[in-house]
Computed example of a mutant assay.
Amino acid sequence: MQRTPLHAWHVRAGARMTVFAGYEMPLWYTSALAEHKAVRTQAGLFDLGHMGVLSVSGRYAESFLNLVTTNYAGWLYPGQSQYGFLLDPEGQVIDDLMVYRLGPQEFILIVNAANEGKDWDWLCAVNEGRALLDPERPWVEPDGPVTLRDLKREEGLVDLALQGPASRAVLARLLSPQDRHRLVALRRTEFLELRVAGHSLLCARTGYTGEPLGYELLVPGPAVEAVWEALLEAGREKGLIPCGLAARDSLRTEAGLPLYGHELAGELRILPHEAGFAPYVKLHKPFFVGRSAYLRALGNWTREVVRFWVEPGQRPIRAGALVVDASGAVVGRVTSCVVLEEGQVGMALVPRALAALDTRLGFVVSPGGEGRVPLVIWGKVIPRFLRKETLPAPGGE
């Protein structure tokens, strides 16, 4: 079992620990609901030290990423990032990832902890010419070699997430006047280098909570505890609290964001367009790995991930629960669901004909059998993503 550099801090703070993707991580410190509410109303701080941090550099770095990812790396300027997917030659999702452009020939990739080893092996195989990239055109290969590095292993880089409406005000308290102005000017998906608590780090305006204001920080391992504690101290008056994986999952579920193995890939083999992320597959590119197979799947698009709501007071709906239509016919499967004060919010894979807003869906929470009647809870389809567009005024948080 692996541990992040903040493991001892989590234990001292009394966190409930759990194992996720081979790492012992905090599940919560107080409660998942309290930490969820803190992010939506104030701010929360997450240890993402389990996430993979890879580097792609060299003369052919941009063309290499255009080959292996579905988005278009050529659109990025230094200081910008984008979301995308790694597909295999059959068009199936290997992973979803964030790509950050540091310079003309240098990029950083943030990948899922559960897929870190698989992603590394795939990228190395492509780079070394050991992977068949297109069964229909076996001669396709990268334009040239790149340098791949595992920055978490080599340099100990740790990903932290500071999320919520007060996150900018908290971070600004630790910055010089010049850096405060730079932080305010930072647009969504952009990043910059800052000095926090005496340590240099990368700060990106990205996140996985659905909050319009939030940051992810790439911090050198030896500095991570000092930066973590400085942020918590700076945010004490703003209501900043440490948050665990349970709140991270409930926040992304409420927001409609996918988790690999649930709303992407997994046993249901969900593809980006079915999950609501078709714009991140750039079909104007003449080629990327999996493009031909993906186009065929797109031409036979019959399923869609929807977000649903169930009124408060009902029995909890679990991932994997069957979904039924108004006639009682089984039509799909729940992929994620969370119980909140306002009711339950979740996602499910259903036929596209049932994806319209306010469509009534039933969720089987007790299958019945042996004379028992199945228990079905009813809800409705709501907008695919949580919309929180209002930003606090600079200095007014």
Rank of each mutant, 00 (worst) to 15 (best):
A197I: 07
A161E: 03
E190S: 12
L151K: 01
R153C: 02
T189D: 08
L201P: 11
D179F: 08
V170A: 10
F191W: 06
C203W: 05
L160N: 05
L192T: 14
L192Y: 15
Q178C: 07
V170T: 11
A172Q: 10
A161H: 02
T189S: 09
E190K: 09
L192W: 15
G156A: 08
G207Q: 01
L201A: 01
D179N: 07
L186R: 07
V184K: 11
R168Q: 12
V158S: 05
A172E: 13
C203P: 09
H199K: 00
H199R: 04
E154Y: 00
L171S: 03
R180Y: 13
R180A: 13
H181A: 10
A166K: 12
L183N: 06
S200T: 14
R153N: 03
Y208H: 02
V158M: 10
A172F: 11
V170Q: 05
G198Y: 13
R195V: 15
L183H: 12
E154G: 07
S200K: 08
P165Q: 01
L160E: 03
D159V: 10
C203S: 07
V184H: 15
T206M: 00
L202Q: 01
E193A: 09
F191G: 07
L201E: 01
L201Q: 02
V196P: 15
G164T: 03
E193G: 14
P177S: 03
V158A: 02
D179Q: 13
V184L: 12
G164R: 04
L160I: 06
L171V: 03
L157S: 05
R205Y: 06
Y208K: 00
G156W: 08
E154N: 02
G210T: 04
R173W: 01
E190T: 12
L186N: 00
Q163W: 08
L171N: 03
Q178I: 11
V170F: 10
T209R: 05
A161K: 02
A161L: 06
L162V: 11
R188F: 15
A169S: 09
G207P: 01
A161Y: 04
K152T: 00
